[in-house]
């Protein structure tokens, strides 16, 4: 699929602020099933933007506005072509302990936010254990999480933990992903947080432009077919009960949200800011029709 994406963020400050430093992780990645053709950013007030790749390979755009200003606009535009990823491989549970798997998994196997172990998810953990193999576990997971928790904006906030999700019984995609990561890692399945954009058009509706939000899903590392062959990272979207496909435009990944926030900034000045952020996605190849 062929998309154009416009990610527009606007802050207004009650009184002028200064030394406004921001880091953006918004550029669609180029991967085996995705290619970013065009990418532009515009900052108002004007600022010099520097780029580098972070530890996880995500492109980071950084800028700073030293002098007083009362608003900040970050306007990002991109064009992306995606293709459907290959079918995920079937491999046995036993393959998760192979050297090849552990090496490929690296730090995404470590129980990052699960230490000390989070209480109250033993049942979920046990259900996943009933799956026949890791791929089946992923299929189970994408139903189990949205069955157990309600998707509700405002139930949690950007710094919420898995425990907050458990307490509220509801959350947003970020929380669903954090919980899923914990569950998968507990079973020895390496899993990482993915930030990106989602073409969220209903299947039967052929609209070619949508207002969406930045989205979060995850990638789990599945052992190769029958435990042989290279392990493969597979995108899984527990918020939308499916595997990630052509509709998912990946920005990058990390251990958890804090490794890959779309916009992170600090400014000097005590005034409160109001934030408006939206992502406008358009299909550039509408003849293909929208499908999940």
């Amino acid at each position: 699929m062929h998309f154009s994406i416009r990610y527009l963020t606007e802050y207004r400050y009650g009184s002028p602020v200064s030394d406004n430093l921001n880091a953006l992780r918004v550029r669609p990645a180029t991967t085996s099933s995705q290619r970013c053709d065009e990418f532009h950013t515009r900052i108002d007030p004007e600022a010099r933007v520097t780029r580098h790749l972070d530890y996880f390979g995500t492109e980071v755009l950084e800028f700073g506005i030293p002098t007083g200003h009362d608003h900040l606009t970050i306007d990002v535009r991109a064009r992306v072509v995606t293709s459907a990823p290959p079918e995920p491989p079937h491999g046995p549970w036993s393959a998760l302990t192979s050297d090849a798997y552990v090496e490929a998994a690296g730090e995404f196997l470590l129980p990052w936010q699960d230490q000390p172990p989070i209480a109250g998810i033993e049942e979920l953990e046990a259900s996943i254990r009933t799956a026949a193999d890791p791929l089946a576990a992923l299929r189970l997971l994408v139903e189990l999480v949205p069955d157990t928790f309600e998707y509700r904006r405002g139930a949690t906030y950007v710094g919420s933990t898995v425990s907050d999700l458990l307490a509220a019984g509801a959350g947003v995609c970020q929380d669903f992903v954090h919980l899923s990561l914990v569950l998968l890692r507990r079973h020895g399945i390496a899993a990482r947080y993915v930030s990106g954009y989602l073409w969220a058009a209903p299947e039967d509706e052929g609209s070619d432009s949508l207002e969406v939000d930045t989205h979060a899903w995850l990638e789990a590392l599945l052992p190769g077919v029958d435990g042989r062959g290279e392990p493969v990272w597979v995108g899984v979207d527990p918020t939308n009960r499916r595997f990630a496909g052509e509709t998912h435009v990946k920005i990058g990944h990390g251990r958890f949200y804090a490794d890959i926030p779309p916009v992170k900034g600090v400014y000097r000045g005590g005034s409160t800011s109001t934030l408006g952020a939206n992502v406008q996605m358009s299909r550039l190849d509408p003849q293909a029709g929208a499908r999940a």
């Binding site: 030394d19 430093l21 880091a23 700073g64 710094g159 926030p261 992170k264 900034g265 600090v266």
Partner: peptide, 14 residues
């Protein structure tokens, strides 16, 4: 505070 600990506002941003 822009790097390292996300919950800390101490230090020199940038």
């Amino acid at each position: 505070p822009l790097e390292f600990r996300p919950d800390s506002l101490l230090g020199v941003p940038g």
